[in-house]
Structures are given as structure tokens and as C-alpha cells.
Design a protein around this nucleic acid. Structure first.
Lengths: 366, 366
DNA sequence: CTGAAAGCGCTAACAG
DNA sequence: CTGTTAGCGCTTTCAG
């Protein structure tokens, strides 16, 4: 048997191309293309000969030549802030899965939350002519960024691809984007309501970058719930900053040191909650006996904290999958114009162990 | 000002190509290519004209055409088991970072631990002609898989790319692969020694798929440490299975239910340790007072457990970075033959809070 | 410094 | 069913 490596060695370092295969099989390259793509009738005998030649030569089609000659590149692009943050990695997992299911490869890039970098990465994806470019996570209310994003959206729509905003608000009317979102305001409202229903009224909102759409919306939901019950949201009750564990820890420590009179904490996401929990545990504050705590996102780790975290579930992986499905579904109308597509996934309160009725005497005031 | 979108609208849906730009700028496409690549002298005025045309037209180079005509594709491929497992996601982060630094994009794919799927994905990466294909994580001692892997390694080397095995042993002598590894056996030996030095002698080895190179090596290190002290490793002391949190929980619960006489647990990785810790906490077993616990990998979450986990540090992100560096460093000799490259990163014991001297009376025997 | 022209490897009509 | 023939959009000699 002639193995791939042997023949490669015999033939030298020249890359094996389709016409090599054609020649070896005694057919034309068109025929090789046909058996490869299986989208056209080819005699069984010819097919076999071609397959044998492919094997013997160790031929692997050049995806670039293919992309150039045909249309689809069989790839999707995804841009996230950070690949190790569970929020993003679960979404990436969903995207990769759905891409694989549809025979596509997945190009991922991390923007580190830098807007310019993000645009730059979108441009690189455009260069790659990916079948979709998925941008994940909240954005800032920045007119320039929005305008540049809109330009890319148009370019992508123009080449038959699509820009999908996953967990990010629209960048403007009449901009051809697809959106996969979830209800940040509503979820925040619900979880705050839950706290209030347990008797809390001095609730602090902790974390989330100032101005980031996601955290703006969560804060709004919190505010609406508080106000609908006539509870005042004093400035000291709102502690924004970042979405990480570290911030949660630092901000909570500070809060505790200040002996602020609060009975519950709404952390802007689960990571912040985890950090806050650490800080409380370190200072001997019991959750939920002394202070109740809730988070947002329901990343799997949340149910592994002690106590298990009450939070708002967001179907991250599904959002990833939906993003590619939506992008791939052609929504052009009869005139070839690109219509908008939008999916809002459901969000729901997950009650676990981190909430209880407020302590008779608040922590730090005994 | 003529915006990109306006002119795109005027021009219709035809993708903007280089010759469009050339025409608009009144030069040849060769010139456009030159200013784009900046690797050849072009008059300043011409350069400006071209740039303006590019802007006006909203031109974005087609990466596939470029890859086809030139050589480098400016991309690297990486294959992991699972994108949300911190072990893998940190490595991916390192790869993405280094790729970005060298102006490359990163194609990622998940094999879900399936060998055939892994080979299939390598083939797709070969199709993409990525500058490197990085396969991450332990492998099974499977001759067929190794042979197929070796074939791919040769193919890749033949087209000027490279197969790098990150955290996986060599697939054979004279196979042109690059290796980025770390000392599993040594780290396991060290952490087991640590336990022994604290007075433990009934230590259970928990987790890790049977036969997976990584876990085989860790188990070997554990055995060597035990045996060097004359402690017998009875079969009941070795509980293999998987690398996940769920397995850790299940196996530890079982162990506890069996009232097995052990004073310490060496979890095959931190996820298993986290699961085991959960199980112990649930049953009222205190760590480390009743039973000591150690893990492996030192994923960041390890220091966020209660108690903080004593474990073996593995520089995951660095390994990712090194993988692409190594792959990109040409190590061809004068005859154009591809030489092997290998990096073994350091591993070190991280002592935290999960180990103490054994209890006078073992848990479950009071 | 710039243009013309020959591919890179493949797909997709268009003829047989 | 199969071969011929154009390109896809770019890079890269080779000539000016």
C-alpha cells in the first residue's frame, strides 16, 4: 500500500493540487471537483479512481482557492471581550457548535473590550468573508463607534454576510444587523422585586462598567423596581465599576468597611457576586443570614458557590447557537434587500440559597 | 464627504475589488497591491491617491485571494476538547493573544475529546493552510490515532506549517511535530510527596480518564511517590474516571459512603478537586481538618475555593503563547528538512490551605 | 517608480 | 457522465 507520506516524499515538497489528483486518476480536474463536492453525477468507477488518487496523493483541498472560486467560505467569525470569562466562553461554545453542525469553522478573536480593536477585528473578519460576524457583549453609547459599526454592517450585508449583535443593542435604525438579545432590564427588575418581596429595601447595586449597555439596563431594572415600591435609590446604593470578580471583592469590602446600612446586594453579574461573597465570607458576614446576595447570568459556577447563588438565568450557549442560525438564515426580500432579524431569548429568575429575609438588626449595626 | 456606505449604495452590490480601487485611483492593481503591502517603493502622491480610493470605495482586501496568491494565510488553528473548561480556555487565550500579536487570526474548534473528530478537524485546518495547527490536551495511547496524526504532521510540515502538540506526548520518532509540554509525572510526584511529608500515607488518587496520557502520567507520579516511601497503592486507592467536576463529586461521595480509611485525596485536576470538595462539604467532612485535598493545574478558580486549594501550577496561558511561537519559528535545516522543536514548561507546587496533618482518628471511624 | 501578464487552486457554466 | 474554458481577487516577476 502506498501511504500518504511515502508518496509525498517521492513527489517532493510541492503541494498536491487538484490537477495532480486529476492526472493521477486520468480525469479532468472538473471531475475531481465533482466527486469532491458530490453535487453532480459522476460514474461510480470514475469516482473510485478519483478517491484512490486522492488517498494515494494525500490531497487536501485548498479552502482559499475554493472560497475564491465559489461563494461561501464555510466560516463564521466571533468577537468577544475575553475568552476565559464564562459569559463569553459559553457563548463561543454555542457558536462553535452550531458552526460545526453546519460544516463551518469558527474564527475567534478577543477585543479586550477595546472599541477600536473591535472594529479592527470586524474588518479582518470581513477580509475573511466569513458567513457571519458575531459581536458579543454590551457596548458603550458611543456615536462614533456606532457609526463605524453601522458601516461594517452594511458592508457585510452587501457581500451576503451578516453582522449579528449578540447581547448588544442595535446600532441604529435601518442598519442591516441581526440581533440576539435578552432582557437585561426585565431580569434585573425581577430579581430586585424578589429581594423586595423578601422584605429588603436597602439594596445596593454592585458592579458593571459605567455606561456599558448591559449594565446600564440592569441598573435601570433595579431602579424601576426600587422606585415602584417607593424606595429611594441614594447614590451610595449604586456602586458601579466593572464586571469582574476582583471588582466585586474590592467594592464589597469597601462597603462593609463603611458599615453601610444595607440588607441585600444585587451584583451586576455572577462574577461580581462571587467576589462580593468572598469579601463577605472573609469578614465574617453570613450570606444570606446577615446580607442577601443575588447575581445575573447564571453561569454554572453560580450553583457551586456556598451558598448557591440566586440569580437570573441567561441561556448563553443558546444565544451563541441562535446567533449563527439567525445569521445564516437569509432574510433578503424580493429586491435583495437585507431585512433585520431579531431574537430575544427568555430570561428567568433562579431562586437558590443566597437570599433570606433581612436581619432584624443590619450587619455592622449590632 | 463621500462615505463608504453611500458609494457602496451607488455602486450596487458588487463587491469592491482591487481593480475597482486601481481604476478609481487611476493606477494599476499592482500598484494598489504595493501600497497595501507597503513592501515596495511607491510615490507618495500615488500612495495618497490609492488610499483615498480605498477609503471612498470602502475596500477590504479578500484574504482568500491573498492567501491563494501569496503563501502565508496569517492564521493559526487550535483544537481543544471543550471551550469552557478553564484548562483549555486559558490555553486558547494564550494562543489567540500570540496570534494577534503576530497579526494572525485564530481558528478554533472543539473535538469533545473524540479522536476521529480531532483528525477531521486537523484536516480542515490543513485545508485552511493555517500557519500552525495546535492540538491541545492529553491523548490516548492508540496506535491508529498516532499513525494518522503522524501523517498529518508530515503533510503540515510539507506545506511549511507545523503540528504542535500542546500538553500531549510525541506521536513517534521522526515525526515532524513541535511539542509544548509540562511535567505531569514530576508535578504529581511533588504534590504527593507534599502530602506524605505532612504525615499522610493513605492517599487516594481521584479522577482522570483511564488511559489518557495526562492522567496516566499523573497517576505514575503519585505511584512513584507512594512507593518510594513504601506505602502500598491498593486498588481501592485509585479511582479513575474523568476530568470534570461532576466526576469529582460523584466519586468522592462514593468514597465517603464507603467509609474508606483515607486521610488525603489527590484529585487528578482542580475541577475534580472542586467536585470532591463539594461532596465533602455536603457530607460535613471538613477540609483539611478531616481530609486533606490537592489538585492539579492551578486554574484561577482554585484559589477561590474554600479552603483555597493546594495544587500544582501549570502556566496554561504561556503554553498557548509558546505553542504559536514555537510553530512559527522556522527550524528547517540547510536541506529544508523540518527539525523537531520542544519546550517543557516549568511546573511548581502551590501550597495553600487544603492540606493539614492527618486527623488522629480518620473521618468515618470515630 | 509603475504597468502588463502570468499564475495561485478551485468552481461553474458550457459544450459535448 | 465528462472535458474545456473562464474566471474568483490578489501577488509577483519581468519589463519598461
Amino acid at each position: 500500500m502506498t501511504t500518504q507520506s511515502e508518496s509525498a516524499a517521492i513527489r517532493g515538497a510541492h503541494t498536491v493540487t487538484m490537477s495532480d489528483v486529476a492526472q493521477q486518476a486520468g480525469v479532468s480536474s472538473a471531475t475531481v471537483s465533482r466527486v469532491l463536492n458530490g453535487n453532480y453525477p459522476v460514474a461510480q468507477s470514475t469516482r473510485d479512481a478519483v478517491k484512490r488518487a486522492i488517498d494515494d496523493l494525500g490531497y487536501t483541498a485548498n479552502a482559499h482557492a475554493r472560497a475564491l472560486a465559489s461563494s461561501s467560505t464555510h466560516s463564521v467569525g466571533i468577537i468577544v471581550n475575553d475568552l476565559v470569562d464564562p459569559f463569553f466562553s459559553y457563548i463561543v461554545r454555542g457558536v462553535e457548535q452550531e458552526a460545526a453542525t453546519t460544516g463551518r469553522l469558527c474564527i475567534v478573536a478577543a477585543s479586550q473590550g477595546d472599541v477600536d480593536r473591535e472594529i479592527e477585528l470586524i474588518d479582518r473578519m470581513i477580509s475573511q468573508r466569513t458567513d457571519a460576524v458575531i459581536v458579543v457583549g454590551g457596548g458603550y453609547d458611543d456615536a462614533s463607534a456606532r457609526r463605524r459599526m453601522a458601516e461594517r454592517a452594511r458592508t457585510l450585508a452587501g457581500i451576503g454576510s451578516a453582522l449579528v449583535l449578540c447581547g448588544r443593542p442595535s446600532v441604529g435604525e435601518n442598519v442591516p444587523t441581526k440581533i440576539v438579545g435578552y432582557d437585561n432590564e426585565g431580569g434585573a427588575f425581577a430579581v430586585t422585586e424578589h429581594l423586595i418581596s423578601q422584605g429588603h429595601r436597602r439594596i445596593v447595586y454592585l458592579g458593571g462598567p459605567v455606561g456599558l449597555s448591559t449594565s446600564v439596563a440592569r441598573l435601570a431594572g433595579y431602579r424601576r423596581a426600587m422606585q415602584s415600591h417607593g424606595f429611594e435609590v441614594t447614590p451610595e446604593l449604586v456602586r458601579q465599576g466593572a464586571f469582574g470578580r476582583r471588582f466585586g471583592h474590592a467594592a464589597m469590602s469597601e462597603l462593609l468597611d463603611a458599615r453601610l446600612d444595607v440588607t441585600a446586594v444585587f451584583a451586576a453579574n455572577d462574577l461580581v457576586a462571587a467576589g462580593a461573597l468572598d469579601a463577605m465570607t472573609a469578614q465574617g458576614v453570613r450570606v444570606p443570614e446577615d446580607i442577601s446576595l443575588v447575581g445575573y447570568d447564571d453561569i454554572p459556577q453560580s450553583s457551586e458557590l456556598t451558598p448557591k447563588l440566586t440569580t437570573v438565568h441567561v441561556p448563553l450557549e443558546d444565544m451563541g447557537r441562535e446567533s449563527v442560525r439567525l445569521a445564516l438564515s437569509r432574510t433578503d426580500d424580493a429586491f435583495g434587500r437585507h431585512a433585520d432579524g431579531e431574537i430575544i431569548v427568555g430570561t428567568r429568575l433562579i431562586v437558590r440559597e443566597s437570599v433570606a429575609a433581612p436581619a432584624a438588626v443590619p450587619w455592622g449595626h449590632r
